[in-house]
């Protein structure tokens, strides 16, 4: 069971309080009806599925209820950082594993 830092609660808490919510920084287009079939397919279905640092969303469902973003290494299963929804994608080169 992982420990996850909630950027809204400023607490590091057990994974059971959180739910996973898929890849982060996939913005729903302002006007979906203007999207081509290919673009819409990309928005709906195509995900990066990276091996390594992955931008993803979590929700502190059983706590403050907020959705937030995280960078988690899919190989080591370690969180590099978490940050509030709407904040820019952090630069990977600035991130180091603080929590062993």
């Amino acid at each position: 069971m992982l420990l996850i830092h909630c950027p809204y609660c400023s607490e590091t808490l057990p994974e059971v309080e959180f739910t996973y919510a898929g890849e982060a920084h996939i913005v729903r287009p302002e006007t979906p009806s203007a999207q081509s079939d290919a673009d819409w397919e990309g928005f709906l279905f195509l995900r990066s599925n990276v091996r390594g640092p992955h931008y993803e969303r979590w929700r502190h469902l059983h706590g403050c209820g907020r959705y937030f973003n995280a960078v988690r290494d899919t190989v080591s299963d370690k969180f590099l950082t978490t940050y509030k929804a709407g904040e820019p994608r952090p630069d990977l080169s600035t991130l180091t594993v603080t929590q062993k």
Binding site: T19, A21, R28, R57, R59, L61, R66, A85, G86
Partner: peptide, 13 residues
């Protein structure tokens, strides 16, 4: 409720 919160918080804050 989860789906509504998702859209509300992340798409239409």
């Amino acid at each position: 409720l989860n789906m509504m919160e998702d859209y509300l918080q992340t798409e239409w804050p």
